[in-house]
Design a protein around this nucleic acid. Structure first.
Lengths: 151, 151
DNA sequence: TGTAAATAGGTGTAGAATACACATAGGTAG
DNA sequence: CTACCTATGTGTATTCTACACCTATTTACA
């Protein structure tokens, strides 16, 4: 019963039991956004993220923050320095966004805008609308229920 | 030079070069949405999805549609029957949404609503706002730039 | 007659990403 | 001296994604 836990993964997408938006991809743009306004270290960034109620984010994603920070630094999108003042724990690495990082954030904003449109469209169709017909294809195969543009 | 292609994966998230929203998770709710209004076979569903400009969706995701359909059927969220009329190709399996599938769609809608709020919040902060302070933590470590709630 | 193209429905799998257990270390409250 | 909070990570089994590839039917057209 002690190693049963290992088989209990929370959101396996092999079972479609619950909607799993599964997007840790949100972590990166939010980290960039936070660092645009404040120079913080990993743990603080993590706390801000948690405070913002990002979907699917939980305690287990904390290590990802550090990994992403290191990767962003490799890519020149953030820079860091050790903070020696104010000891309330071990040394901490304070990050700030570089110019390249700001450009990257605005790239992300463009991508998220597309996302947002896709979501708005989903709800437009979901609440009342009808799924639009793609291209010029008129449905042929047994549309039992209802159908639009019945040529 | 012929097997070089195999090493060119489009969006490896190990390199953060471009914003990868990477969400094939959109496929499932959109499939459910399409099937709520129409009984279609996999290929038609695929065409609708492509016509709706979902972010990140491309030709390579087509097999996923079939896999997801079979899985949804296993889970009782869709049902299918072979279509014998109207031969313009091989036999096709026509899917429709079950009651369980409709419930699942509304579960998805709830999840996507959270998503939408998260995106709206991102843009609110991105365009002018300031990242909010989590909990009651007042920033301590070298907030060089600016800061709010400076107690 | 044959061969190409579109439609239709898949399978196989290398490699990437995720979830989560676990490691390390300083400061401080008891 | 020990337990707890802060802070920064590493390791890896399992899952997911990208994409190459396979089969079959019908229509077009050379």
């Amino acid at each position: 019963m002690s190693q049963d836990k290992q088989n209990e993964r929370k959101n396996s997408k092999t079972s479609n039991d619950q909607p799993d938006l599964g997007n840790k991809a949100f972590i990166t743009p939010y980290m960039l956004l936070v660092l645009r306004d404040l120079n913080l270290h990993g743990y603080q960034i993590w706390q801000r993220l948690m405070g913002m109620d990002l979907p699917g984010l939980n305690e287990h994603d904390r290590p990802a923050v550090y990994r992403i920070l290191r990767q962003l630094e490799e890519e020149g999108k953030v820079s860091s320095e050790w903070d020696t003042t104010d000891k309330t724990g071990p040394a901490r690495r304070v990050y700030s966004l570089t110019e390249a990082g700001k450009d990257f954030l605005s790239l992300w904003a463009d991508g998220l805008e597309h996302y947002r449109k896709t979501l708005n469209f989903f709800f437009k169709v979901y609440t009342g609308g009808l799924v639009p017909n793609p291209f010029d294809i008129t449905p042929k195969a047994t549309p039992d229920k209802k159908d639009e543009t019945q040529n």
